[in-house]
Structure formats: C-alpha cells, structure tokens
Design a binder for these strands. Structure first.
Lengths: 149, 149
DNA sequence: CGCTAATACTTGCAATTTGCAAATTATTTT
DNA sequence: AAAATAATTTGCAAATTGCAAGTATTAGCG
C-alpha cells in the first residue's frame, strides 16, 4: 500500500508537468512560475507585492523581478497605492486576464479529460476531499504555511 | 464553487512549499528537484538516466548535471550497464537511501499532521480518491504524459 | 565484415532564475 | 526633526536551465 507521500508525489509531479505545458497562450510563453503569479493576482483583490510574494513563498527580490517582466509583457499593472506610496498594488491588464483565463480553461480541460476515466461519483468525491484537505492544511501550523522560517 | 483547477492549484502550491521545506537532512541541503530525483531513483529498480529524466520531464542534459552533483554528494551511484555500455544505471548509496527515507518520513509526518484536522473516514476517502485520480491521469493521453511534444 | 544510423550520455556556451546584502523611497515613531 | 520601520528595487555572484555540438557505444544493413 502506498504511503500518503507517494500518492501526493506522483500526483504533484503530473500536475506540475501539466502546469508547464499549459503556459503557452498565443504569443505568450510563460514559465510555470509566471503562471502561478498571474493566477494569484487574479484571485486576490489588488494585492501588494509583499502579499503575493509571501503567499507564493517566493523571495521578495526574486518576486520583484518576476513582476517586472510580466509588466513588460503587458500582463500585469503595478499601481502605486494611493494611501501609502511605498506599496504597489498589482492587477491584471485586460490582456493578462485573457491569458489567465485561457490557462485556466486549458487546465480545466485537461483535468476534465482525466476525470472522464472516473465515474461522476468518484470525481465529486475527489473534489470534495481535496477541498477538505486544503482546509486541513490551512489549519496545520507546522511548515508550509506561506511564511518561511 | 471552486473550479477543479483552483482546488488543485492551491493544493499543489502548499505541497510544493512542503517539498521545499523538507529537503534538509542533517548536513545535506537538497533542492526540491534533487529530492524528486532521489525519490524516483529510490522507487525504480536500477533505472537508466534516460528513464528517470523522462519520467520527471527534465531535459536530459540538465538531468545529467543534476545526477553529477548528487554523485558528488555521495547520494547516488552511477553504474555502467553490463550489457550496454552507453547506459548508466542509477541507484542510491546507503547514505542516499538514508536521506530519501528521512525526507519521506518528514513529509509523511507533515501530512499526518494535516490529516489530524480531518476525520479518519475523510482521510481514507481522500487517499483512495487520489489513487484513482492518479490512475485516471495515467490513462489520459493528452499532455502531461512524461513525454513532451 | 564494414560503414552508416541511431542511442545514451556529456560538455560548451549563453540566457535565465535565484537569493543575500545593500540601497532607495516612503511612512511611522519618538 | 531624527531615528526606526516598512515596501520595494538594484548589485553582484552562484545555481539552474536548454540548445547545439561532441564522444562513445551499439544496431542495422548492404
């Protein structure tokens, strides 16, 4: 019988490969890192650089440069915060939203393809289970909280 | 309601952070990539370089260098194949096995910690679901097969 | 057998990514 | 108003990556 770790290792490897493959949208050729960045900016509401970097567990200086390149690609806006000018708020440009939506769609398509090899009940159970697991990890104080020791 | 992609994105992010944090064993400070490499060599039986590189979706030249550094750290053995001398078979040294086992243990410990926020039934369901999902992804022909287009 | 093709793996750059320390700009505290 | 704190950006320097080209070794085919 597989240990939990084995199951998760195989799954994350496969999903990681998926992530790599789903990063090309039209002319845009994103890295997996950049795709994560777009995803996170998209789901947060005008987050600051710090916030996103911390959520993703990325060094802030590395993050700063990643954002720069996405701004250069016209996918991300960096707007000075009106109430505190040390802070820059991040948001997606219309083009960025388009790219993020396309990536999202591609990944959901692949996932649905994989789900087609499972019964409807199994899929529902899987998704419900992962939701519970995500919540459980959120409660877990150990490591892997966004903040690093 | 979250899309499948959202659920998986959050989960893989957390598991990725876990992976990063679980890579230090005594003096050894491994990268997540190196940890994956150890894991895969451990579970295969004397695989060739090609095999592992392909499974992990890594460029073979990059892989070659990764192996070199692990050999230098005395974690991996690179043995010429007796029947075909173009091939090198990989295996873990005793020290490599030790490191791999420790990483495995650390990750399982964290996972169990997270599981402690779920009922026993929920955990069983989760693990069974992931197993099914892994099999489904294996059947899926699309992308994310180890071979890249 | 002998020559070409294919396979497994390794180097040589060159570009990209990363992180620590230090600098910059803006705000808060005293 | 000076000092401490906070958010972000640069300056290296090291590590990671990938493509093209190179080295062995084996397979295929006349």
């Amino acid at each position: 019988m597989e240990t939990p770790r084995e199951l998760f290792q195989i799954m994350t490897r496969r999903l990681g490969l998926l992530n790599k493959d789903c990063c090309s949208v039209g002319g845009c050729n994103l890295s997996a890192t950049q795709s994560h960045l777009l995803y996170e900016i998209d789901r947060s509401h005008n987050p600051s650089m710090q916030q996103v970097a911390e959520t993703l567990g990325t060094d802030i200086t590395t993050f700063s440069r990643q954002v720069q390149s996405l701004v250069k690609m016209s996918l991300v806006n960096k707007t000075p915060d009106p109430t505190d000018r040390r802070i820059y708020n991040l948001s997606l440009t219309p083009e960025g939203k388009m790219v993020a939506a396309t990536i999202d769609q591609q990944m959901n398509e692949y996932l649905n393809e994989a789900f087609s090899h499972m019964s409807e009940f199994e899929v529902e159970t899987l998704l419900r289970s992962i939701k519970l697991f995500n919540e459980a990890m959120g409660k877990s104080s150990n490591c892997c909280a966004p903040v690093k020791g």
